[in-house]
């Protein structure tokens, strides 16, 4: 699959990554070569094959509805780059 500059910008925006002009060409080339590498998958006839999302089949792993929280708020906020009044702080979000 041919990868264009717009393709890379589109996914970069989805992934919230910024691409600088000086790295753009190499990045497009790298991604294209990886995607091309993956294009070999289309050779395989998988018409009647179900995808496997988990290598190990497991089902119904469920927890009981019992409160087990024992963390301290200050501890949980201790790694926050910016905080205020017991909250995580971000630039003003306009809804």
């Amino acid at each position: 699959m041919k990868i264009t500059s717009q393709d890379v910008e589109y996914v970069a925006n989805l992934a919230r990554l910024k691409i600088h002009d000086d790295e753009k060409d190499k990045l497009i080339a790298d991604i294209e070569s990886i995607i091309e590498f993956a294009d070999v998958l289309s050779e395989v006839d998988t018409e009647n094959i179900e995808p496997t999302y988990h290598a190990i089949k497991a089902q119904n792993v469920l927890r009981e509805d019992i409160v087990t929280n024992n963390y301290d708020r200050d501890e949980l906020l201790s790694n926050a780059p910016s905080k205020q009044d017991g909250c995580f702080e971000v630039p003003k979000v306009v809804e």
Binding site: S42, T46, P51, A55
Partner: peptide, 18 residues
């Protein structure tokens, strides 16, 4: 991403079955 899911992600998971 939209339009490529089946060709890449889902395809790869089918290859996983194989």
């Amino acid at each position: 991403s939209a339009g490529y899911y089946d060709a890449y992600y889902k395809k790869a998971q089918k290859i996983r079955t194989v």
